[in-house]
């Protein structure tokens, strides 16, 4: 029990913070704590939540990807093109086209980072501008709309019905029924992505190798693990998820714009950092990242419900990042106040 407390301290704190914010907002605006609103929070954050899994993997390898927003925009346009060409009748085809496009872009990033040994932030800053520039050139900034048919419905599709058998539930929920499982398909896709990421990272050989490369590059080299493979997997996975997320977004808002996803990279990095992913690599937390996304989502939603101007959200996000990162930095500080300079003699 104590071990869980120590190892999952960050996650527990995040859960606590989310609950506290939830209680405060509910006091001001009771509608916050309704199943419709909670589902709304999940639904509107699925896109981020899915992409955050990819960003987490990249940060785990000791890299970063600031071009995710652009990957999301490019693949979103491809999704919309396919969806419109098929009249929205082939949602799966459109989704796969988006995932393929995103994966190709991600693999390109990974290949450049691994082969040319250029820092990922520089590479992806470059590819970010290349992707956006190319996209704007081709589309002249025009969006694709008129998405209809099954494609325009899949994100919000409810496969399961609310539980409404008992009179009690009927009464409590005001006739709507208990909707724990009656979630939009987008939310189920998000859950599936987290499960897949978990299995990948903790149960597969290549997933463990990614963690190893992130933990100690030199040691990985010395035991013959391929850094290139790890980078390609992480960046490719990120791209694929950006494509998937862009398809969900296109289905939700029924339109795709070249300017989609601007600034997403910062929000994703923020969610990962709040969730405890370490920039030095090797440490990831799927639950933490999920909570990071939810925390930002709850703040966003709470501020809207309580009619606080949206600008406050940016400010709140900033404060939370500093608090989250600051608290872990504080914990690793050595006794004696200041951090002692690392002594070269104590070889770690």
């Amino acid at each position: 029990m104590r071990k869980i407390l120590r190892e999952k301290a960050r996650e527990l704190i995040l859960i606590g913070v989310i609950i506290v914010i939830g209680i405060i907002v509910t006091f001001i605006m009771p509608a916050f704590f309704s199943q419709l609103n909670i589902i709304n929070v999940l639904y509107s954050n699925a896109v981020f939540g899915i992409m955050a899994m990819g960003m987490m993997l990249i940060i785990t390898t000791g890299n970063i990807d600031v071009s995710v927003g652009a990957q999301y925009a490019v693949s979103g346009m491809v999704v919309a093109l396919v969806a419109r060409a098929t009249g929205g009748e082939q949602p799966l085809l459109a989704i796969l086209a988006g995932m393929g496009t995103g994966m190709a872009l991600g693999l390109m990033n990974g290949l450049i980072v691994a082969k040319l040994s250029i820092p990922a932030i520089v590479v992806t800053l470059g590819t970010l501008n290349i992707m956006r520039g190319t996209l704007n050139l081709i589309t002249s900034g025009n969006w694709i709309d008129g998405l209809t048919g099954p494609f325009a419905k899949f994100a919000n599709l409810r496969l399961l019905k609310p539980i409404n058998g008992l009179g009690v539930i009927h009464a409590i929920t005001g006739g709507k029924g208990l909707m724990v499982f009656a979630l939009p398909l987008a939310v189920y896709i998000w859950i599936l992505v987290m499960v897949v990421t978990y299995i990948f990272l903790y149960r597969t050989g290549v997933g463990r190798d990614i963690l190893a490369v992130g933990g100690n590059k030199e040691a990985a080299r010395r035991v013959g693990l391929s850094q290139t493979k790890a980078y390609l997997l992480a960046f490719g996975y990120m791209g694929m998820l950006a494509g998937l997320a862009s398809a969900i977004a296109a289905s939700k808002i029924k339109i795709a714009q070249p300017s989609n996803g601007t600034g997403y990279e910062m929000k994703l990095i923020a969610a990962c950092v709040i969730g405890g992913t370490e920039f030095s690599g090797g440490v990831a937390s799927i639950l933490g990242t999920l909570l990071g996304v939810l925390l930002l989502g709850v703040i966003d939603n709470g501020l809207v419900l309580t009619k606080v101007p949206a600008y406050w959200q940016e400010l709140a996000t900033g404060v939370i990042i500093i608090l989250a990162v600051g608290s872990s930095a504080f914990r690793t500080m050595k006794p004696g106040g200041r951090r002692a300079i690392k002594s070269g003699g104590d070889r770690k």
Partner: peptide, 29 residues
């Protein structure tokens, strides 16, 4: 096998995993 002076291991992984890294090539751990 080389045991380097700077102990080339993975601090973020478990002792068991450090000992066995690269030993098994199962797709699933």
């Amino acid at each position: 096998s080389v045991i380097y002076q700077d102990v080339s291991l993975f601090p973020n992984l478990s002792i068991a995993e450090n000992i066995c890294k690269g030993l098994y090539h199962d797709a699933f751990v």
